[in-house]
């Protein structure tokens, strides 16, 4: 602003921007496009050859590849649905309770409920694996004590339950994030609005549904897109709990584990960076579609209130 009149080059602007732009461009942006580009190549006789969209034709058309891809995508979608249906409502409920009444110990509850979020996937994956394990018997033992032992299943080991179980474990880990963001949004609602509503006779549940919920919709939108991006790029929990093969029988395979396996190879199959790049490109496309739907379809329609 000060020297915008002077014609000389303002080197300090370049000096301030250079380190960040350089690291961001070389380590993030160029590799991102290089990966998209690599998906158009294949290795034939030890040389890299341009094959156009051939890899994608294999990925979507070849029976072996496409079954794996659609399986991973469907699992990933289910993983996301679990988060939207369980994690976010629980987070909103807890935040609403924490913020509604002048509750004692609310800071303590808040800190405690956030603890799983700070733990690594490795800890969370193994801890739950041990707790649900039929060998150790904590889960069956606890069900037995309330007379529900017949409900026990080795959930992580059964195809029909494993993915849902992992989804719920991930929900357990991340409930803290929607809780915090919604809590912050609820606190930022001005008291005058709530008092005005109370004067009109709107209290309790009605106050939440009719006044608070519409006001926090933008925050719920942000949480949804954060959940979407996080879920479609997830890998760690499945890898920690079920390994790269995402067992049993690929029933917990999601796009992240599928890409890892393809890129690095496993057992007898060799790693293939080009097919790995093709899967990464597909993930990029999916995330881009999600972000665009959010930016242009949802965020624009939500009314934002300025206080």
């Amino acid at each position: 602003m000060t020297s915008s009149m002077t014609p000389k080059r303002r080197w300090h602007i370049i000096v301030f921007l250079a380190p960040a732009v350089l690291i961001y461009t070389t380590v993030m942006i160029i590799p991102l496009f290089a990966t998209l580009r690599l998906s158009m190549f294949a290795e034939i006789n030890n040389t890299r050859v341009w094959v156009g969209l051939e890899n994608f034709r294999t990925l979507f058309g070849d029976a072996v590849w496409s079954t794996q891809f659609w399986n991973a995508l469907a699992n990933n979608a289910w993983f996301f649905i679990i988060h939207m249906l369980v994690q976010n409502p629980i987070g909103i409920l807890i935040a609403a309770i924490l913020s509604s009444s002048r509750l004692r110990f609310s800071a303590l509850y808040r800190s405690a409920i956030f603890i799983p979020t700070i733990l690594s996937f490795v800890i969370v994956g193994f801890a739950w694996k041990l707790i649900l394990s039929p060998i150790w018997g904590i889960a069956p033992g606890m069900l037995d004590s309330v007379g529900l032992k017949f409900l026990y299943q080795p959930w992580l080991g059964k195809e029909q339950y494993a993915l849902t179980t992992l989804g719920l474990i991930s929900v357990w880990q991340f409930v803290g994030i929607p809780m915090m963001l919604i809590y912050a949004a609820l606190l930022s609602i001005p008291d005058e609005i709530l008092e005005a509503a109370e004067c009109e006779g709107i209290t309790g549940m009605a106050l939440f549904w009719k006044i608070k919920l519409p006001l926090i919709l933008p925050s719920i939108g942000i949480i949804s897109i954060l959940t979407f991006v996080g879920n479609f790029n997830a890998f760690d929990l499945i890898y920690a709990a079920q390994g790269a093969l995402a067992g049993p029988d690929y029933s917990t395979d999601i796009l992240g584990t599928f890409m890892y396996r393809t890129f690095f190879g496993f057992q007898l199959q060799l790693g293939d960076p080009h097919m790995g790049s093709a899967i990464a490109s597909a993930m990029f496309g999916i995330i881009l579609i999600g972000v665009c739907i959010y930016l242009f379809g949802i965020q624009r329609r939500l009314r934002h209130y300025q206080f």
Partner: peptide, 15 residues
């Protein structure tokens, strides 16, 4: 902010 850096993993490893 919105695009995860993991998407570029293959090229990051090559780099």
């Amino acid at each position: 902010i919105m695009i995860p850096i993991r998407i570029g993993t293959v090229a990051i490893l090559e780099l």
